[in-house]
Design a protein around this nucleic acid. Structure first.
Lengths: 190, 190
DNA sequence: CATTAAGTAGACCAAGTTGTCTACCAATAT
DNA sequence: ATATTGGTAGACAACTTGGTCTACTTAATG
């Protein structure tokens, strides 16, 4: 990816995260990026494609961070707990690569682009599937039964979504920590 | 509230829920409402006030429905389970008063209006507090310790947010059901 | 050397945004 | 009877939207 394309993507991502997607116009993006409008449209033939680019970039950033965090867990079972400790760090702005917490970019994008057939919505679904798969690898290590493992993975993911949403809407930055005991309860039965 | 004001509020709510708030213009609202623009601006001096009106109306609808549903529970403990059965009905379009499921209007509104000091954002916070208070009344009945009751209520609420978000983003309409066993586990310890 | 890709600034376009205003109508209340 | 309230249709203003285009510059590459 060229320098300018990267700058535009990063700037747009920051603006979208802070203000929402519809609320940010192309003109604001080019102004903040210090780039000509032609340059933006040279790299992205439409706003939608720029949005997709920000989603893909954010997915990369987030997954790299999460993979690294979960890999620090001493054993598979504690990866689930590590997930919620990581969320807590994210909510409380202790993760520099993720920037200031403003909810999950993908959940928020879905709130603005509801049509399940549109590319933006599908990008968001894909990101959530990526996270679920990553967590699933750890759960599979201590739960041999495929069905039980899949259900537990899913449950943990739903808990995670709840923590993120609660942290955003109610500005309850301790939401992830409040679930730690629940997570332990769920994991220890296996 | 006058007839026209009510019609406008209901129409706008429907449009906002289906398409998002920024994506719907005043002109579309008046066209669908079959009302003159002057009439809309007679009742609502700005779009923001119209949005607030739709939020308040939705809060009323939702709370009435939920109160009625939870009151059907045979005992306090089963009200928590009833909550997730109710969510499942909502997700799967078995609740006519709530309309077709398209996520939580309040979560989605927060995704578009992130500034915590703005009236719209605060309306959303208030709705979530209303739901939490309602559920708290039931939890208080079987958990005498104030702190424990508050924590459990909060945890159940986070689970609820997770189910709603998962149902929207991943179109997993069984999200609420997948938490039933977790809810039972949490409640039965008390 | 010549071509091509990537960049600049910014004018321009058609459409859409929120919101105001005129001019008129109909019912209701003092 | 007259004033007020709530309503109509729609023109209009001021601005923003996504997107195109011209004219020009710069740098790398075959």
């Amino acid at each position: 990816m060229s320098d300018k394309k990267m700058i535009i993507t990063r700037t747009a991502l920051q603006l979208f995260i802070n203000k929402g997607i519809h609320a940010v116009g192309i003109n604001e993006v080019i102004k903040q990026s210090k780039v000509a409008k032609k340059t933006l449209y040279h790299h992205f033939s439409s706003k939608d494609l720029l949005i997709i680019s920000t989603l893909e970039y954010r997915d990369q950033l987030f997954m790299q961070w999460l993979e690294q965090r979960l890999s620090q867990a001493s054993e598979a079972k504690s990866a689930a707990i590590e997930l919620f400790l990581a969320l807590d760090d994210w909510f409380n702005n202790r993760v520099t690569v993720l920037g200031d917490f403003n909810g999950c970019f993908f959940i928020n994008a879905c709130a603005e682009y509801k049509d399940p057939s549109c590319a933006i919505n599908q990008c968001c679904k894909m990101h959530k599937a990526n996270v679920q798969n990553l967590l699933g690898k750890y759960v599979d290590q201590f739960e041999a039964d495929k069905n039980a493992a899949a259900l537990l993975t899913k449950q943990l993911c739903i808990l995670k979504e709840g923590a993120i949403t609660t942290a955003l809407v109610q500005r309850d930055l301790a939401a992830a920590l409040k679930l730690i005991e629940v997570v332990k309860l769920l994991v220890q039965r296996h």
